[in-house]
Deep mutational scan, measured.
Amino acid sequence: KLETFPLDVLVNTAAEDLPRGVDPSRKENHLSDEDFKAVFGMTRSAFANLPLWKQQNLKKEKGLF
């Protein structure tokens, strides 16, 4: 399991300012399950079932792209 970080560490943070080991294209993977659901309004599995373009739009909207 990946290390999780608080939302404010990941949202609207440039790649070079992210904690070590965080993939800038997969910031959402480093949210706790609770934060993930609070941000996206759905579970990880529901998010994973969305088309890629919709996932990317949601990530942009939430500052996690």
Rank of each mutant, 00 (worst) to 15 (best):
L2W: 15
E34I: 10
L64M: 07
T13L: 09
V11N: 04
K37A: 12
R26A: 11
G21Q: 08
S45M: 14
P51D: 07
P24M: 06
D35E: 08
V39W: 04
L18G: 05
P6Y: 02
W53Q: 10
H30T: 02
N57C: 15
Q55W: 00
E16C: 12
D17M: 05
K54D: 12
W53K: 10
L31E: 01
F5H: 07
G63E: 03
R26V: 05
E28C: 03
S32C: 06
D33Y: 06
G41S: 10
V22A: 04
R26Y: 10
G63I: 02
N29D: 15
K37W: 15
W53S: 10
Q55S: 03
L18V: 06
F65R: 04
P6L: 04
K27D: 02
R44H: 07
L52P: 10
L52V: 14
T4C: 08
E28H: 03
M42T: 05
P6K: 05
H30N: 06
K27M: 14
K59G: 01
L52N: 12
D8H: 15
K62A: 15
A46P: 00
D33E: 12
F65A: 15
K37E: 15
N49M: 13
K27A: 06
R20Y: 15
N57L: 13
R26Q: 11
G41A: 13
D17L: 06
L52D: 12
K54N: 11
L58D: 01
P51I: 03
L31Q: 01
F65N: 12
K27P: 07
M42V: 07
L10K: 01
K59Q: 03
D8T: 09
S45D: 14
K62M: 08
S25V: 09
P19I: 02
N49R: 11
W53D: 12
R26N: 11
H30Y: 14
K62E: 05
A14H: 09
V39P: 00
V9W: 12
L50P: 00
F36K: 00
T43M: 08
K60S: 12
P19H: 03
P6R: 04
P6E: 06
L31F: 02
K62G: 07
R20P: 15
R44D: 01
T43R: 06
T13N: 07
T4N: 07
V11I: 14
G41F: 08
R20F: 15
L7E: 03
Q56Y: 08
G41K: 11
L31C: 01
A48M: 12
S32D: 07
L2K: 10
P24F: 04
K54R: 12
L50M: 12
G63P: 01
K62C: 10
K37C: 13
A48L: 09
E61M: 11
A14M: 07
E61Q: 12
A48S: 12
